[in-house]
């Protein structure tokens, strides 16, 4: 018995020695987008913010683009669980494993550090559109199934799933037109080729200021701080709330002490001026959720989209 206690104590000491010094070497932040993509900007800003709050080791952003995050996730899983490889995540963490056949990882293979905010998803129409409110749009779609053309960011993307879910709970049928970039969707909306789009605020803010587009609704649980006049889909009776969350994770199995050190640094970084300016500029809704609470959000999120995504493949 005493032996076991001594052994445990010894292991404990060894263990704490092993990561007492974390971080002892440069830390890699993995972005699953190419340089310039949304997740890349997020990771580079985070690295810079960690630097400004005095993170004791150099930080490097590594781009591992491909397969909507699948390549990045696989890359991090191939690294040791020591906290020296951080993955920048968005809601693709949920979508990609569900839509990629044979993909072996999910969010359960990662240990959350924190979520720092989210992009709300808006339903947007051109300002010369006949739809003044979200009810107009849905009622028209109800009367004319399949005639309302909704531009989204590619099949199985969060835009698409927001649209699919709205169609499902409102009992209507949209005609989804997939595009490769936000610029193409917006150009098609302004050119009158599509009737509505699902977008993030940063994509349409300039047009909104110029009065070229109108926002009908937002797909969040509560109204958005920056646009308090925009109704949520939920308050109209359609329970669709799928914001694009953003955060950071490490591989599952990283020692709890290391995760805690990382959480402390990350919280400091996220609260820094550099990072707050980024949130402001990208029109992100700040929402600091740390550690296991983030996991809870992920579990709920997955449950909310699982049915829609499985229906996608049929």
């Amino acid at each position: 018995m005493r032996k076991a206690v001594a052994l445990a104590a010894l292991l404990g000491i060894l263990g704490s020695v092993a990561f007492a010094g974390y971080p002892e070497k440069p830390v890699e932040i993995v972005a699953w987008a190419s340089p310039g993509g949304g997740s890349d900007v997020m990771c580079r800003t985070f690295a810079k913010a960690l630097e400004t709050v005095g993170f004791p080791q150099p930080l490097y952003v590594v781009n591992k683009p491909g397969g909507s995050g699948a390549v990045g996730m696989t890359y991090v899983q191939g690294k040791p669980a020591d906290g020296y490889t951080i993955l920048g995540v968005t809601n693709n963490l949920i979508f990609t494993p569900l839509t990629t056949p044979g993909f072996q990882y999910s969010f359960r293979d990662f240990e959350p550090i924190l979520m720092f905010g989210y992009d709300p998803k808006y339903i947007v129409v051109a300002s010369n559109s006949r739809y003044q409110t979200i009810e107009d749009l849905v009622n028209f779609a109800k009367a004319h199934p399949g005639e309302v053309k909704v531009g989204t960011f590619g099949p199985g993307s969060d835009d698409h799933v927001v649209g699919m879910q709205l169609a499902q709970v409102a009992g209507v049928e949209f005609n989804f037109i997939p595009f490769d970039s936000g610029g193409e969707i917006l150009a098609s909306l302004l050119g009158g080729h599509i009737d509505a789009q699902v977008a993030e605020l940063s994509e349409v803010k300039g047009q909104l200021d110029a009065g070229a587009v109108r926002i009908l609704a937002v797909a969040t649980a509560e109204r958005v701080r920056t646009l308090p006049d925009v109704p949520t889909l939920k308050e109209k009776g359609w329970d669709v709330a799928l914001p694009k969350f953003r955060g950071f994770m490490v591989k599952k199995g990283t020692p709890a002490e290391v995760v805690q050190i990382l959480i402390d640094w990350a919280v400091k970084a996220v609260q820094s001026d550099v990072f707050q300016a980024y949130l402001e500029a990208q029109h992100l809704e700040p929402a600091l959720v740390v550690g296991p609470d983030f996991t809870k959000i992920l579990v709920d999120y997955e449950a909310a989209v699982k049915d829609v995504l499985q229906a996608l493949g049929q």
């Binding site: 310039g36 900007v41 970039s181 610029g183 940063s202 300039g206 070229a212």
Partner: peptide, 27 residues
């Protein structure tokens, strides 16, 4: 219009936004 015509202009638009300049028809 504030619409990127290529990948690189999308990045440049992002730069404008970092500086708090909202790209769009009013630019």
């Amino acid at each position: 219009l504030g619409i990127p015509g290529s990948e690189t202009t999308a990045v440049l638009l992002g730069v404008l936004m970092i500086y708090g300049i909202q790209p769009g028809p009013l630019l």
